[in-house]
């Protein structure tokens, strides 16, 4: 019954819906990568006050992992940076 009327109905313009959803998703995706980069440079800046670190092999990421005590999965921040030398205080 509805099939015939659906066919005659004006188009839903899902193209625009797709574009809008995509743009929103991409803002989120792109910002997250930018955010991680910003955090990375801030940490490098901070660490430099105390030690000489290998910036080329500095690696950070956010992963979903279960908390050891609670077992609940939460996003966790991971940072790996080889230390070349720790400055004497």
């Amino acid at each position: 019954m509805f099939g015939i009327f659906d066919f005659m109905r004006k188009s839903s313009d899902s193209r625009q819906v797709a574009k809008d959803r995509l743009k929103l998703v991409l803002v989120n995706d792109r910002m997250n990568m930018q955010l991680l980069d910003n955090i990375k440079y801030d940490i490098i800046g901070l660490m430099k006050n105390y030690m000489d670190i290998d910036e080329d092999n500095f690696y950070i990421s956010i992963v979903h992992k279960a908390n050891r005590s609670t077992g609940i999965k939460t996003p966790m921040f991971y940072a790996n940076f080889p230390i070349k030398k720790i400055y004497k205080s």
Binding site: S11, R15, L22, K23
Partner: peptide, 16 residues
């Protein structure tokens, strides 16, 4: 589908 407004066009995708 693009003409009907139900699919993103080449311009839409390349612009995004």
């Amino acid at each position: 589908l693009v003409k009907k407004g139900d699919m993103m066009s080449v311009e839409d995708v390349s612009e995004i």
